[in-house]
C-alpha cells in the first residue's frame, strides 16, 4: 500500500458514492409521473445510467421528480448544474438521453433541437 494506491481507492469509491453527494456537479432530473413512465421515462433513466457508466463520468447524480406538467412532451428531463440555468428537454428517448449527456454534459453544448425551455435555478433554500 502506498499513497497513490490510497488515492486510487478513494477516487474509485467516490464515483460509486455519487448519489450521496450533496452538491453534485450535475444533476439529471427525470420526470417520473404516471405520464412520464407511460411515455418511457424508465427506459430513459436506464439509458442515462448506462451512459454514465460507459463513459466513466463522475459527479453526476440521476434523480427523479414527479409530474413536470407538460405531459405532451414526456419524458421530460432537466439538466441542473450550479451557476447555470436549468435546461429542460422534452420527448427524451433513450437515444436522445445519451446524446444529451454526450453533448450537453460532457461538451457543455446544450442540444437546442429538443429543448423545451430554460429557467433560472431555484433560489437556495
Amino acid at each position: 500500500m502506498n499513497l497513490d494506491e490510497l488515492k486510487r481507492i478513494k477516487e474509485e469509491t467516490l464515483r460509486t458514492m455519487t448519489p450521496r453527494d450533496e452538491q453534485p456537479e450535475t444533476k439529471i432530473v427525470i420526470g417520473m409521473g404516471t405520464c412520464g413512465i407511460t411515455a418511457g421515462a424508465r427506459q430513459t433513466l436506464a439509458a442515462a445510467l448506462e451512459e454514465i457508466r460507459v463513459r466513466n463520468l463522475t459527479g453526476i447524480t440521476v434523480a427523479q421528480a414527479g409530474c413536470m406538467g407538460l405531459c405532451q412532451r414526456e419524458p421530460l428531463v432537466d439538466i441542473v448544474r450550479p451557476g447555470s440555468q436549468i435546461y429542460r428537454y422534452g420527448d427524451v428517448t433513450p437515444d436522445r438521453m445519451k446524446q444529451i449527456i454526450h453533448q450537453h454534459i460532457v461538451n457543455d453544448r446544450p442540444v437546442y433541437d429538443w429543448l423545451v425551455g430554460t429557467r433560472n435555478s431555484a433560489p437556495e433554500r
Partner: peptide
C-alpha cells in the same frame, strides 16, 4: 464497478 442512481442508507 457498479453504479447506482440511488442509495438507501439504513
Amino acid at each position: 464497478m457498479e453504479l447506482f442512481r440511488s442509495h438507501i442508507l439504513i
